[in-house]
């Protein structure tokens, strides 16, 4: 088990992080290259002011008409995404590992708080799953890949939660946790989880078109 742990938290983690950062840069760069080659006009419509105006409205809960129309979803999606990003970055045990490996460390969450945030992520994933199979308009456009990416996202949190509480087989759970984290990192740029990378751009472009050309709100 230790050999496996050392593999997933060592070489495989390197691969995962390289794929994550390299992949992200590659995806964004190739998108921009494609814009430059085929839709150069997009650059001439981009506006910082309207991009930020649009992004700002959409990253604030209830600041848009649609967020207000969907109060439950809005609360769930905002807390889900916030916890999804913040928990792994500010988790004490992760920062301890960064410190040991690279001598860098930063502020950390109390474990009890991180535990709650993990539960929020898991419950959020359950909510999205239920929504996907019960809401007709979501179900209609659901494909297998939607369940795959949801699983990829939830897995590190479920295994992390079980490992933290040392339920079931701790060493196994720990290894699975690290493996699931590696998979999530590597998958982000290359699946529709890439909305993390692209949504600021699509939002900014729509915001610019609406603000600069259409003189209308896009929220």
């Amino acid at each position: 088990m230790h050999t496996f742990y050392n593999f997933v938290s060592g070489p495989l983690a390197w691969v995962a992080f390289i794929l994550f950062f390299g992949g992200s840069i590659y995806r964004i760069a190739s998108m921009l290259k494609l814009v430059a080659e085929k839709e150069r006009f997009i650059f001439s419509y981009m506006s910082w002011r309207y991009s930020l105006r649009s992004i700002l409205h959409w990253i604030i809960p209830f600041a848009t008409v649609n967020w207000r129309r969907q109060p439950v979803l809005t609360v769930v999606t905002f807390t889900f995404h916030l916890c999804l990003l913040a928990t792994p970055i500010f988790l004490l045990s992760h920062v301890v590992l960064w410190d040991e490996a690279f001598n860098v460390s930063w502020w950390t969450l109390p474990d009890a708080v991180a535990d709650v945030m993990t539960i929020i992520v898991i419950l959020g994933a359950v909510y999205f799953l239920v929504r996907r199979v019960t809401q007709p308009e979501v179900k209609f456009v659901t494909s297998a890949s939607d369940f795959v990416i949801l699983t990829i996202v939830a897995a590190p949190f479920i295994t992390g939660f079980l490992a933290y509480h040392q339920w079931l087989s701790y060493p196994l759970m720990m290894c699975l946790h690290v493996l699931a984290g590696d998979i999530l990192l590597a998958a982000m740029p290359f699946t529709r989880l890439s909305h993390m990378l692209f949504s600021p751009f699509t939002r900014a472009y729509m915001g610019s078109e609406f603000g600069k050309v259409r003189h209308a709100r896009d929220w």
Partner: peptide, 29 residues
């Protein structure tokens, strides 16, 4: 202190390829 403990215990365990190295193997609930 945290890092001293961790590197002292885990560092040796890793070098010796013996002993616990994962968080919960020492910090048992």
């Amino acid at each position: 202190l945290i890092k001293a403990f961790h590197t002292s215990c885990k560092g040796c365990h890793q070098a010796q390829k013996k002993g616990p190295i994962m968080c919960g193997e020492c910090h048992i609930k």
